[in-house]
């Protein structure tokens, strides 16, 4: 449907709905339920240079209108993503996929990105800069404009595909980080990653999550995400992908009115595996209800 199409860093996608990394695996669980080729694209499970088990369990905590996760980037490592996951993915998803990559040093990021760059299935890189920098005292790359810029600049230099920087909201001023990434060559910005949070179990009197803290996500964070997307979209010239708590077609439109070119849907997939399917199917009627002709025009309204 023409009115749903948007252009993301030079690649046209059928609709702006993109399952967010870490909530959609490599697609197969969802492909059992519906044809995932209806998606604009999806951002696959955060991939690192080496295989990772991630954090100890419990990794999940319930919250009001949301959840905390502390998975810790469990993934099979880039070599097995290339040799096992991508060939399997090809059978259920025929469009360019977004490669979400993580690392614990600039070299890690560059290695993973270079290995994936030659894979035809990959359309974009989404660089998760919320990981701790082991050479920078464990501080997250994404909380310091200089290290954010280092990672994005280094990856950008080595790959041919568009590079999207995925920002952490756990910063004083997210627009500073966004600008640093844009200046380093980022072709797009996606935000927000999860908000740092925690829960304590009244029965055990101890934190619910084994790692004590984790990332808070779900509908509760939507207003925070919307505000940050608005701020960043007014600051940078590159396209912005808005995410954080989106669970309905109305949320998608609201996020695009804040300046997002496309959106990612994360936690909603975990609660309702049909979430993206439903959002995509409901978008045309919701657009009609609000007199919206074409989604690609929405971001200009409040520009």
């Amino acid at each position: 449907m023409e009115r749903m199409k948007v252009s993301l860093c030079g690649i046209e996608i059928d609709n702006p709905v993109i399952p967010a990394s870490g909530t959609f695996g490599f697609g197969y669980e969802f492909a059992e339920l519906y044809d995932i080729d209806i998606l604009g694209t999806f951002s696959f499970k955060g991939t690192t240079k080496d295989e990772r088990f991630g954090n100890p369990t419990p990794r999940i905590a319930e919250c009001t209108a949301g959840m905390i996760n502390s998975v810790g980037l469990q993934n099979p490592g880039v070599e097995r993503v290339i040799s096992e996951e991508l060939p399997k993915l090809k059978k259920v998803f025929g469009k360019p996929v977004m490669a979400n990559i993580s690392g614990f040093s600039v070299e890690d990021y560059v290695y993973t990105a270079e290995r994936l760059d030659s894979e035809d299935q990959i359309g974009w890189f989404e660089v998760n800069i919320s990981c701790p920098n082991v050479h920078g005292g464990g501080m997250s790359f994404g909380t310091d404009p200089k290290s954010a810029s280092q990672v994005i600049g280094a990856v950008k230099k080595k790959v041919s595909k568009p590079v999207i920087a995925k920002l952490s909201p756990n910063v004083t001023d997210i627009t500073t980080i966004a600008s640093a990434c844009e200046d380093a060559g980022a072709d797009g910005i996606s935000l927000i990653n999860t908000l740092l949070g925690m829960r304590i179990d009244l029965k055990t009197k101890k934190p619910v999550i084994a790692n004590i803290m984790g990332g808070f996500s779900g509908p509760a964070v939507f207003p925070v995400a919307l505000r940050m997307v608005w701020q960043v979209a007014h600051r940078v010239k590159v396209p912005v992908i808005g995410l954080g708590g989106i669970s309905t077609a109305e949320d998608v439109i609201e996020m695009m009115l804040a300046g997002a070119t496309a959106v990612e849907v994360g936690t909603a997939n975990l609660i309702d595996p049909y979430a993206c399917f439903k959002i995509i199917n409901e978008l045309p009627s919701v657009m009609d209800r609000y007199g919206i002709g074409s989604l690609s025009k929405l971001k200009e309204i409040n520009a």
Binding site: G22, F30, G54, I60, V71, Q74
Partner: peptide, 8 residues
């Protein structure tokens, strides 16, 4: 159902 890796 296997998507979030929460219970590994």
């Amino acid at each position: 159902f296997g998507a979030c890796m929460g219970c590994s």
